[in-house]
Simulated scan of single mutants.
Amino acid sequence: MTDPAPGADRPQDAGATAAEGGRAVVRRRRISVLLAVALLAYLIDLGSKLLVVARLEGRSSPIGVIGDWMTFQVIRNPGAAFGMGQAMTLLFTAIAAGVIVVIWRIARRLYSLPWAIALGLLLGGALGNLTDRLFRAPSVLRGHVVDFISVQHFAVFNLADSAIVCGGILVVLLSFRGSNPDGTTHGGPAAKAEPAGEKAAEPDGEG
């Protein structure tokens, strides 16, 4: 019986390395999408708040956008999205920071494009409102969020809230369809490519 020739296992190792490298490229691209969506959502929210504070705050009457059904009026909100929990400003600041940490941990195993978009919306919205809580009056960590979109018989909110809601809805839909951030499906096969050469290494049977 002869020993395997030196380097006989190298094709399998090279194939596995190439497949792993391909997965790493996909993950980097998905993280890039997440960050791009988050940055866009954050900048739009920040710009809109700066604009309405400069132009609308202090006005005695709201600005009609769609008749009386939707108007613009600046309200400083110490609570969560849509004015909920106004007595727990510090708690919601901590929650927003925690959401950002969780999103970043999930991004370490992110291979799904729809999940990248959903998490980007959540991240951008969370950063937008967290910026208000950190840097706006009355104090650090207790800042009041700028809300300005008023919908009749509903609530007053901002674009960060809208991004969070849209991202949350997308997460629910993806979960309902069985999709996971790492590209797998609930009870289904992984979407990650099988390392090249793995099948070739399996014995074809006794001969």
Rank of each mutant, 00 (worst) to 15 (best):
W104E: 09
F82G: 07
S162N: 10
R142L: 15
V172R: 08
A81G: 14
Q86W: 00
D147G: 04
L90V: 09
F154H: 08
L127D: 07
V102E: 03
F135A: 05
A97M: 07
L134G: 00
L119A: 02
M88W: 10
I169S: 08
R109Y: 04
L130M: 07
L121I: 05
F135D: 01
A107W: 05
Y111P: 04
L90E: 13
T89L: 06
S175M: 12
N129G: 07
L130N: 02
N180M: 14
A81M: 15
P114S: 08
L113P: 06
L159E: 01
A116H: 06
Q86C: 00
F148N: 12
P78M: 03
V151K: 07
I103D: 03
L170P: 01
S139D: 11
P114V: 08
H144Q: 12
G178I: 07
I95R: 07
F82N: 06
G79L: 01
G85R: 03
V172L: 15
M88T: 02
G168Q: 05
L130F: 03
N158D: 00
I117C: 12
L173G: 14
I100L: 15
L130H: 04
R109S: 15
A116R: 03
F176W: 11
H144N: 14
F176M: 10
L174M: 12
D147A: 07
A107S: 14
A81D: 14
P78S: 09
G178K: 09
P78W: 06
R136S: 05
P114D: 12
G98R: 14
N158W: 06
V101P: 01
A80G: 13
T89R: 05
V145Y: 00
V165S: 15
A155K: 12
P114N: 13
A94N: 02
I149H: 05
D182N: 15
P181D: 07
A126C: 10
A81F: 12
L91A: 14
A118W: 02
I164F: 02
F176S: 08
G125I: 01
A107Y: 03
I164Y: 03
R177P: 03
A155I: 08
P138D: 06
L141P: 02
H144M: 06
F157C: 10
H144T: 02
I117H: 05
H153P: 04
F157Q: 10
G143Q: 09
A107Q: 09
L159T: 04
G120I: 03
I169A: 13
G79I: 01
G168R: 06
S162A: 15
L123D: 15
F148T: 11
L123K: 13
G143P: 13
